[in-house]
Design a binder for these strands. Structure first.
Lengths: 175, 175
DNA sequence: CTGGTTATTGAGTGATTGCTCAAAAACCAA
DNA sequence: TTGGTTTTTGAGCAATCACTCAATAACCAG
C-alpha cells in the first residue's frame, strides 16, 4: 500500500492512528474478556490475564511467536503533547474506558463475594491498571524471562486479598 | 544555541541524548538519596520517595511548579528499536543500575531488620521499580490529583511488610 | 463485455530534520 | 592590546516526512 490509498481511507496520519488505537483497545478488552470467561472466578480471570500479559511480553506464548511490543496506549500517553490535542483526548478517553472495564470487573468480583463488600473498586481498578502498565513496561527491558514471570506472580500475590504479605514471595517462597 | 554549537559539543543527536539520559539518571538517584537521608528508616525513605514522585507528577510540590513530565528512561525504553542499538544498550544499562540501586537500598533495610532476613531483595527491587513505572506513567493521565495520591498510598500499603492486605485501603480504610 | 464506481499507484511538493562548515564572535593568557 | 584558542552563528544541503492528485487499475452489478 502506498500513501495515497491510506490517506484516501483515513484522511490523515492522525486519523489513522486514532483508528489504530481504537482497534488496539478493542483487542485489549477482548483479551481480558477471554481470560474472564475461561476461569472460575473473576479474580482468577484477572490473575490469568496478568500472567498472559507477562507471557506475551516475553514471547513465551506459543514459543514461536515474537515478544509482543510495548503497550500502544502507554506509548501514546507518554508521547502526546499540547500540540496533539485530538490524540490526547483519545488516549485519555481510552484509559478511562480501561479503568471503567476493570472497575466493572472488580464490582462483579465484589458482588460474588470474592472481595470485601466495602471494597473501593474504582480505586482498586487504578491499582490494577498501574500494575499492568508497570509489568508490561518492565518487560520491555532486556531482562531474563523469569524476572518478568516472577514480577507478575509478585503482583498477583500483592493484589490477592487472601494472602498476607508476611508470607509473600520475596521471602520464604523463593530461596 | 544553534545546531552547530550543539554538534560541536556532543557530536551527534544520539550522543546528546545519551548524555541527557545519564544526567537524568543521576537526578533520579539524587532524589532517592535525599529521601533516604531525611528519613529514619530505609523503608520510610523509600515510601517518601514514592510520595514525592506522585507529588511531582501531579505538580503539587511547591504549588507553583508545573507537573514533572513522564520518566525519560521509560519513554526511551519504549521507543528504542533494533536500529538504535546504542541507545538500547544505554537505557537497559541505566535500568539495571536503578535495579541495583534499589536492591542495595533494600539490602540495607533487610540488614537493619526492616525486612525479613530471607527477603529476595533483587526481586523486591524489581517489584518496586514496576510500581514506580506504573505510578509515574499512570500520573500522565488526565485524572484528578487525588487518584494519583491514593494510588501511591495503595502501592505503599502493598509494599509494606507489616500491613495485611485484608485491611488494605480499598476496603475498610477509605469510605 | 460494459459502464460506472472504488481502490491503488507513481510522481511529485513543500516542510521539516539531522547535520555540516566557513566565517564571525567571544574569550583569555601573555 | 595582541595572538591564539574556543564558541557560536548563519547559511545551506541531503534526506526524510506528511501529504496530494491525476492517471491507472481493480472491481462488480447489469
Amino acid at each position: 500500500m502506498r500513501p495515497g490509498s491510506i490517506y484516501a481511507a483515513f484522511g490523515s496520519k492522525e486519523d489513522l492512528f486514532h483508528a489504530a488505537l481504537m482497534f488496539y483497545y478493542e483487542q485489549l478488552q477482548e483479551g481480558l474478556k477471554q481470560e474472564l470467561e475461561s476461569h472460575g472466578t473473576v479474580l482468577e480471570g484477572m490473575r490469568a490475564y496478568l500472567r498472559r500479559l507477562a507471557a506475551e511480553a516475553t514471547g513465551e506464548i506459543g514459543k514461536g511467536s515474537a515478544p509482543v511490543p510495548a503497550c500502544m496506549m502507554v506509548k501514546t500517553l507518554l508521547e502526546v503533547t499540547v500540540d496533539t490535542p485530538g490524540l490526547t483526548d483519545t488516549v485519555n478517553h481510552l484509559f478511562d474506558r480501561v479503568e471503567q472495564d476493570l472497575t466493572a470487573t472488580l464490582d462483579q468480583a465484589r458482588e460474588k463475594g470474592e472481595l470485601p463488600p466495602n471494597t473501593d473498586c474504582a480505586r482498586l481498578a487504578r491499582l490494577w491498571q498501574a500494575q499492568i502498565i508497570g509489568l508490561r513496561t518492565f518487560a520491555q527491558r532486556r531482562v531474563p524471562v523469569q524476572a518478568v514471570t516472577l514480577l507478575a506472580e509478585d503482583m498477583i500475590s500483592l493484589l490477592d486479598p487472601t494472602v498476607s504479605p508476611g508470607a509473600n514471595s520475596h521471602g520464604t517462597r523463593t530461596h
